[in-house]
């Protein structure tokens, strides 16, 4: 049992985080041309709408929900002190979970049934979608069967995750959890590990900086003013647009 726990809740999370970091840096530097969300809307747009929109907004909500509970568990507990507020939070999160799940099912069905989309599907896409489906399914199950997740996340999971990042992993509480909660955690790290090696890389480059850059962009490959200045040395830095 101890071996099992140490492997899945201590060793594996570290492996996942390290692989994620190394993989991300490698992918970003070495395979820039393949770094893309490889959207397929151009081939099929109607079904994508019913899949992509609920999935993405749902998962963004869930992601930030988990992140808040991890970063500021105290405030989540404070919020949850009133039963009404707890109910609002839990119901919203559960609805977001359902939306994400249904959206992803739609996307998965589209991927397998549309002959055009099938052509641009590879194994990584399928594995990833199955993993995500399972992960969201576990999440929904946990939320439904072991209430109230938003509260006990703050007291059980948040300290565990914090201990991981403090290089002092404490798994005592985790090992007591029901199996599906454990699976939800393990799958989460597995997905984290896979981010750099799948199309999920696109979430790392969500173009928020668009909001503050000027609309137009002009790049001079050669600053002719500078290269004519005899005082200037040879520059080895090429202008780049990222």
């Amino acid at each position: 049992m101890n071996l099992y726990n140490n492997f899945f809740f201590v060793a594996f999370p570290y492996v996942a985080v390290i692989m994620f970091l190394i993989g991300t840096i490698y992918r970003y530097r070495a395979t820039k041309f393949k770094y893309s969300s490889i959207a397929s809307q151009f081939l099929e747009t109607r079904r994508l709408y019913w899949g992509s929109v609920p999935f993405h907004w749902g998962i963004i909500f869930l992601f930030f929900g988990h992140l808040t509970a991890f970063l500021v568990p105290r405030y989540v507990l404070l919020w949850n002190q009133q039963p009404l507020r707890l109910a609002i939070l839990e119901i919203t999160a559960f609805v977001a979970g359902i939306l994400t799940f249904l959206g992803l099912i739609n996307l998965f069905y589209r991927r397998l049934s549309n002959p055009r989309i099938k052509k641009v599907t590879n194994y990584a896409d399928i594995i990833l979608e199955i993993l995500l489906l399972t992960e969201i399914f576990f999440g929904l199950w946990v939320a439904y069967a072991y209430r109230w997740g938003s509260s006990w996340f703050a007291v059980v999971i948040a300290p565990y995750l914090k201990s991981i990042f403090e290089f002092n992993p404490q798994t005592d509480a985790i090992v007591m959890l029901p199996l599906v909660v454990q699976l939800h955690i393990i799958f989460a790290f597995l997905i984290l590990l896979l981010i750099p090696f799948t199309r999920l890389v696109h979430l790392l480059v969500f173009p928020l900086s668009y909001l503050w850059r000027p609309y137009q962009k002009v790049i001079w490959n050669w600053n002719r003013k500078k290269i004519r200045n005899p005082k200037m040395g040879w520059t080895i830095h090429k202008p780049q647009n990222n």
Binding site: F33, Q41, I219, N241
Partner: peptide, 26 residues
């Protein structure tokens, strides 16, 4: 272009898409 992959080349005004920066936001 959200990722800023498209630019106008200063020297001659040719508009280009940097294939390494485009992320299919379309």
């Amino acid at each position: 272009c959200p990722s800023g992959a498209i630019y106008k080349r200063g020297e001659d005004g040719v508009v280009l898409i940097n294939q390494k920066v485009c992320r299919a936001w379309r």
